[in-house]
């Protein structure tokens, strides 16, 4: 999938730019995108390193397991293939809670740890498991309760009520998460 998508972006992008005759901007894009990639990693680096450290404490102290236990009844229904005491459940919970609070960048390290834990239980190392797909569907359908960036931007543009969109965002998120999880459920069952 990523294979095809990656090729598609590059091939279509270059061909269309050439067609429109913007050779100079194309050169610019190719030469500078490595730098913007590095900048992106540099933005992520301190956050991931810091939160991995803090989360290690949560893991060693047993906190992560306790949080996982707390939401287990709900989560284990969504992730039937994960073992009940799986560390992945704890990380999935942390990721979703951080995402819901609009702390996207703090959520990433938890998500990466969750993937790592699920990969340990994966028998076919280059293929996604059911649990991974459910997790990513849940994650990307965006369980956002407080869209912090959007509110900040609305405030900047002198909105009369920057927070008013929280209601519509929560409801829309609910609809999209349920739609995504339902489709995921049927596709998972169809395979068996």
């Amino acid at each position: 999938m990523i294979n095809k998508l990656w090729g598609f972006f590059i091939i279509v992008g270059i061909l269309f730019t050439l067609l429109m005759g913007n050779i100079e901007s194309l050169n610019d894009t190719i030469l500078t995108s490595a730098t913007s990639g590095v900048n992106m990693v540099l933005d992520l680096l301190p956050i991931i390193v810091l939160w991995s450290g803090i989360m290690k404490i949560a893991e060693e102290s047993g906190l992560l397991k306790r949080v996982g236990n707390f939401v287990k009844p709900v989560l284990s229904k969504l992730f039937p293939s994960l073992k009940k005491d799986s560390k992945a459940l704890g990380y999935i919970t942390s990721n979703i809670v951080a995402n819901a609070m609009g702390l996207g960048s703090a959520a990433t390290p938890f998500g990466l740890k969750a993937m790592e834990e699920m990969q340990k239980e994966n028998e076919n190392k280059d293929e996604a498991t059911d649990a991974m797909i459910t997790f990513l569907v849940l994650n990307t359908s965006g369980v956002t309760i407080v869209p912090t960036t959007v509110i900040a931007l609305r405030l900047m543009h002198h909105s009369n009520n920057p927070e008013e969109i929280i209601i519509t965002a929560i409801l829309a998120t609910l609809v999209s998460s349920i739609a995504g999880l339902t489709l995921d459920y049927f596709r998972r069952r169809k395979r068996k």
Partner: peptide, 10 residues
């Protein structure tokens, strides 16, 4: 980032 930039800037 490389692929997305090329695509968006086209």
């Amino acid at each position: 980032v490389f692929a997305i930039n090329i695509f968006l800037n086209s």
